[in-house]
Simulated scan of single mutants.
Amino acid sequence: MVDIGANPIDGTPPYAGLLKQGVIRLVGFEPQPDALAKLQQRKGPHETYLPHAVGNGEQATLYICQASGMTSTLKPNTAVLDHFQGYPIWGKVKRTALMDTVRLDDVPEISHIDWLKIDIQGGELTVFKHGEHKLKDTLVIQTEANFIQLYEGQPLFADIDHWMRAHGFMLHTLLEQRRRLYAPMKLKGGIHQGINQLTTADAVYIRDINQLDTLSTDQLKKLAVILHVAYGSYDLSLRLLRRLGPDFDESAYLKQIGKPLPLTLSAQHPISDAAEVHQSNAVDDAELDAVEMIFVVGCGHTGTTLMATILGESDAIHTIKRETEWFLHGQDFSTELRQEREQAIAAGKRCLLEKTPRHVYRYAKITAAFPNAKFVIDL
């Protein structure tokens, strides 16, 4: 596992559960000294952190912005930022600094990469192009992708997707979809809740499902475990594991999930069998309702991600891996809520934590649905 941009302020990473179990080895990159010090202080036996900025191997200019989350080796694109609320302030350059970068292919601490997570504010495609040797056998890549050019010359989602498809990957899902508000409109006096304009998302790419025959048995197992544990893609995980042949116990897998799956099984494994497995392992509704809800809300760039990360370190709290936006668009989230509560119970945790900053505007709706919910508000 490689994490490029491992700053702990970015929240609970998708690999946290597997790392805690000791089944993966992590190499993280974090050039910011303060963030690197925090990572070094709390690292476990399977973690290595390097102080390098990953890029094309040449010296780069770092644009240090008013909001640290906007700092990048690309210059903020004021022509675009000025259309929106907040961005003209957050993207204001305070100062610049020169720094050296290393090519991913030249890092001796890494022999190969099964799983890559990367978030470096527009520099992702450069890393891919200078890491093609190390990435040739990679199974999963989670990368931040932009839909509008927040930085000058920034590659967009289409550019990243083109590179991915050319190198044997396909898009699996989009996480953390972020929307921003056009100026001068405000919503309920605030500027942090967008309406429709997508700006960024975390794109998860996997090996093309039409090229699975090129994967070894070990790679199939790794990919299935990552999809199951980190992303909850139980349907694809099951399909991968069935390629293992008679050694794979499908019933045992369904029991481990402990929830109904949106799939149709073959005649040898009718759907009724899956239903029976679920019924025998179903969690009682009263036990589900006993899982306490915690909502981390607030304004953008106020530390909600860091707060959720800190709280998620508790042995009593299970953290949902994405911003659900459950109460923003009138969606039915009952199935996902049940799944997350079941995972909390399976992990021996009595609290479920959800972090969507814009839920600060939905206090009444949340308390109507969860009268005993607890809130952590960052302003």
Rank of each mutant, 00 (worst) to 15 (best):
S237Q: 05
A373I: 13
L328Q: 11
F147H: 02
D119Q: 09
Y49I: 03
G232T: 10
R242C: 11
S280H: 12
L116P: 05
R358T: 10
G303D: 10
G28T: 05
T264S: 12
I113Q: 01
P262A: 10
E250H: 05
V229G: 01
Y182H: 12
L26E: 09
F128K: 00
L198G: 00
F157S: 01
Q21A: 08
T73E: 03
M170I: 11
S111I: 02
E144F: 06
L36E: 07
I294V: 13
E342I: 15
K365Y: 04
S280I: 11
I110Q: 02
D273M: 08
V204K: 02
I141Y: 04
L181Y: 06
F333N: 08
G194N: 07
Y151M: 12
Q339L: 14
R338S: 09
H278G: 01
K255D: 13
P262F: 09
A67R: 02
L254Y: 08
K92R: 15
V376S: 06
R180E: 14
L311F: 06
R243T: 15
M185V: 15
Q211N: 15
P260T: 01
K365P: 04
A166T: 14
E250R: 07
T305W: 04
I9G: 01
D273L: 09
V360H: 06
G232W: 12
E109W: 06
S280V: 12
Y253L: 05
D284L: 08
P260S: 00
A274D: 13
A267N: 11
V140I: 15
E342G: 05
E58Q: 15
L353W: 08
K92A: 14
E58F: 14
P184A: 01
K188Q: 12
L238F: 04
L62W: 06
A35H: 15
R25A: 07
F295N: 01
T200K: 00
M164E: 05
Q40D: 14
M1L: 10
L98T: 14
L212E: 10
I160M: 10
G348M: 07
L254A: 04
I148T: 07
Q149K: 07
M70D: 09
L26H: 07
Y363A: 00
L50A: 03
V277A: 06
D315L: 05
A37N: 10
T302F: 00
G330S: 00
Y361C: 00
S237T: 13
D315C: 03
M99C: 11
L244W: 08
Q154I: 11
I9L: 09
L288K: 05
G312W: 08
P14K: 01
K259H: 13
L74I: 07
K94R: 08
E287C: 04
A145Q: 02
I294C: 01
K259A: 12
P88Q: 06
M99R: 11
L36Y: 13
A282F: 02
T304N: 05
A252D: 14
K221L: 13
T143L: 05
T214L: 06
A6K: 01
V376T: 10
F128I: 04
K349M: 13
V2I: 13
P262E: 11
A274M: 11
L215M: 07
P45V: 09
H318T: 01
K255V: 12
L104D: 08
R180W: 11
E336T: 15
A308W: 02
A166V: 09
H301G: 03
A373C: 08
A282D: 10
V291Q: 02
H269F: 15
K129D: 13
